[in-house]
Design a protein around this nucleic acid. Structure first.
Ligand SMILES: [Mn+2]
Ligand SMILES: [Mn+2]
Ligand SMILES: [Zn+2]
Ligand SMILES: [Zn+2]
Lengths: 138, 138
DNA sequence: GACTTTAGTTGGACAAAGTCCAGTATAGCT
DNA sequence: AGCTATACTGGACTTTGTCCAACTAAAGTC
């Protein structure tokens, strides 16, 4: 995720301890944390980082296109650092676990003109729901 | 929507003025109101209905499978009385207008086993986003 | 390395969406 | 009409998120 920090520096971002920590927290695959989860993990590395800064930083990352907002459950927004490879999500209805998935096919093509109501359609979001292996055991 | 009231009576529901009003508010096609919108419209018909009752009633309708919760934007949940015909949604990114749509194809079939991570997948939700004719004009 | 500028951070107040509960009212039964 | 379980109410509380004025510090200049 230091690629990210490089790109951001290139865009005129001041490199602060807070931003570095948020970027660290967002590293990895299948990462879909809420703002408060990001804050909790950031605090573990930098105790006095504020909620407001986490919200600000996440918002900026979203604006810059480096992080996506996803709302797989109906509660808090989740922040997804996997912004550069298009993908969809598979969510466990019990525990909320989220995996990135790459379905075949093109759902855009499956919406006939007669079902577009004059809209200009620009994007599709697909969410698969089910039960994860862990929850299936219990 | 009086079919609904019949079914509910059959399930042992007491028929109260509040529940009748909530059911009335939910009548129609392409209806996707937030709880507070339902409350506002219910108040117009029955001034002293409380927010708590609206939330309770909507929750019960969801449990009974008579209404679906959808979260097309990242804000309040929306309540969808069109629970008996499977469908997906087309949302205007500007004004939030929502239409029910029925795409062709079967997105379930588009998720290969190798992309299921051991999950038992039971449901897919597809949200199309774009610009509605109204917002396109402006 | 100190100075300056200005972007970034902070904590707390505020707002919106939703839950919970103790007390009150009433639908439906007899 | 009277009884009782169910439903309703209003308010307190929680969670998620936004906003702001005062403070802090990154990065450029000397
Ligand atoms: Mn993702
Ligand atoms: Mn719908
Ligand atoms: Zn699970
Ligand atoms: Zn629109």
């Amino acid at each position: 995720m230091s690629d990210l920090l490089e790109r951001l520096r290139g865009r005129g971002w001041r490199m602060t301890a807070q931003r570095r920590v948020v970027a660290e927290v967002l590293a990895g695959d299948h990462v879909h944390l809420t703002a408060d989860e990001v804050h909790a993990r950031a605090v573990a590395k930098l105790p006095e980082i504020s909620r407001a800064t986490v919200y600000n930083t996440l918002g900026e990352l979203v604006t810059l296109g480096e992080v996506l907002e996803v709302s797989t459950d109906k509660r808090a927004k989740r922040y997804d650092p996997n912004a550069h490879r298009p993908h969809h999500h598979l969510v466990c209805a019990q525990c909320g676990a989220i995996r990135d998935v790459h379905p075949t096919g093109n759902p855009m093509a499956d919406l006939p003109d007669s079902e577009r109501f004059g809209f200009t359609v620009s994007d599709v979001e697909v969410t698969y729901r089910g039960t994860c292996p862990n929850c299936a055991k219990a």
